[in-house]
Design a protein around this nucleic acid. Sequence first.
DNA 1: GTTTATAACTAAACCGATTTAGTTACTTAT
DNA 2: ATAAGTAACTAAATCGGTTTAGTTATAAAC
Lengths: 343, 343
Amino acid sequence: MSKVYLKDIAKNLNLSKTAVSLVLNNKGDENKISQETQRRIIAYAKEHNYVPNQLARSLSRGKSETIGLIVPNISDSFYAKIAGRIEERAKQMGYTVLFSSSNENPVKESWLIQAMQNRQVDGLIIASTQKNHDDIEMLKQIEFPFVLIDRHYPEIETNYVIVDNYGGIKSVTEHLFAMGRKRIGFITIVSDLEAMRQRLKGYQDTVEQGGSPQDQVFVECLAQDQYQQRMEGVIRTMVKSPNKVDALIFATHYLAHEGLRALKKLRVKIPEEVAVMSFSEMSAFDLVDPPISSVMLPMQEIGNAAVDILVDEMDGTHAVQAHEKRRILDTELLVRQSCGNTT
Amino acid sequence: MSKVYLKDIAKNLNLSKTAVSLVLNNKGDENKISQETQRRIIAYAKEHNYVPNQLARSLSRGKSETIGLIVPNISDSFYAKIAGRIEERAKQMGYTVLFSSSNENPVKESWLIQAMQNRQVDGLIIASTQKNHDDIEMLKQIEFPFVLIDRHYPEIETNYVIVDNYGGIKSVTEHLFAMGRKRIGFITIVSDLEAMRQRLKGYQDTVEQGGSPQDQVFVECLAQDQYQQRMEGVIRTMVKSPNKVDALIFATHYLAHEGLRALKKLRVKIPEEVAVMSFSEMSAFDLVDPPISSVMLPMQEIGNAAVDILVDEMDGTHAVQAHEKRRILDTELLVRQSCGNTT
DNA sequence: GTTTATAACTAAACCGATTTAGTTACTTAT
DNA sequence: ATAAGTAACTAAATCGGTTTAGTTATAAAC
């Protein structure tokens, strides 16, 4: 009842390991193993519940049927959702997922890329810290299959699946203007992420071009590691000062989360005093009073596209066109009540 | 500049693979490799950026330094948090995590347990569907190291890390009584999970024993796959009927989420008309109006304990006492405003 | 001057598969 | 009668490490 190995099957059936291996890998016919022998092998394997040792298999074939996934933080619902999708899709395609979080630390990310390669993953999906130019460049150099998601390096030509950050924020800002807001504030974090840059730009451009002459740009930029402590002060200044805004856009869901906390504490009325919109959704935005309007990101699609592109890279068929491997997905504006609409 | 293998190092230094392998595994001294040789090997390896092939290593050593994690759903914030912690802790201990979701499907769970074993994981952490008695029993039989988390099989003696579901709900229920509520409703899902059974029992026992004579049990049990459609109806009946309740306990966060949606739609005033409490926390419970009181589960601790126990099992030192490997962690009552307190 | 011990290594088996390059025993064609 | 062809396999190399069981040269012991 102990474990059965290939050689056990071979021995017990008086066959060679080769024959058994070929048959169990569906290469029996093309290698002219007789039907009868094939039947015996398959029957024996099934009966004794044979399952090949993947390590040995991978080592010998030089591929592991595993893809590595590196995200900044698996506890973040956004990445958790994407990870779930990737895992599901990968399984459909016959791959297992090895995942890890970089915790937004480029050194750890670099270490992980190494570690995953040692574990012979066949390809990588990376939501990078975007402070790891060298490793990404290296991966490209050695032609290792990989796809960047959510964050990409504009200066490196790679495959990626990201969202239209610029367009997403643009639509939010325009919507607020359309709702009659004049002084729109934008709260973001200090960040080198291209995504964040695009969101800021989307906001600035829209206010500058689309608004009326007196429209101004109100931006607050919080440090990544202390936005929680400083949020209340920032909100107070933006909402209570004489120079106050009448709408607020949060550049991402956790900022919105913290911001709403502050707004609640300060008893600011939404949307009467300020309209509020968030980029990227959070569960429970629909439960808050009033429900928060936001930009929805196509998380399922990010996951699916990433796997599809990666699989195409890995199997080398290159069925997917190169330009199809740089995907900027559309976002969707989800209008609830926090931006002062009337429905 | 191509990849360096052990044999390359050996060849270039005029040494055997054995020597190189020993030294790089810190077994140089005990095998009397001269200091000078050790220096050369290490220097060469570092210079050429040698990293061992983990597959080959694992295959030959019979262990992979990998632990498998199976959860019902990685997109669920609860499991995502735990997974994050497990990954972090495992890395500290020198292990990599291979994770997968069973999607609450026992067949898939069974398949995953197999697949992970083929990939030679050294141990498993499983948040089981709890419909997989046979596999768990098998794992125990073959003495494969594993730890169950969040859900355990009461009929099988295993290692586990769970929370005190009974006590958690008991404290919630008692708190509501203390706040003067008399007719407490309990909304749960149809489930064979021991955890759910315990929560229901915790509620029932508390109402029956602790309450005043006229206190009654009001339980609604929703099917897992249609609680979203049916929630509104259920809430309406419980809250608007002549026989209505004055408090509601949700057995888990996603039920609370859906329930709050319904309560909002029905314009039920919380906590005036009904007090609301949830078992297990959800981000944003603090943002809802009024903020929702809930039972907080020690997710960090679940993750840490699971890894610690598993590592102890895997390395065979058995430094951890057997009774320390069945852990029922305490929950914490987080009182906000939804249960009618006065602070 | 031979045995014994020790330092500093190495050859080769092994982990459990896959895969290349044959081999053997028959048919069939010439 | 012999070469050529084919069906049905197999031996052995390989993947990249780890590990067991030596080997060799030199020093110390008797």
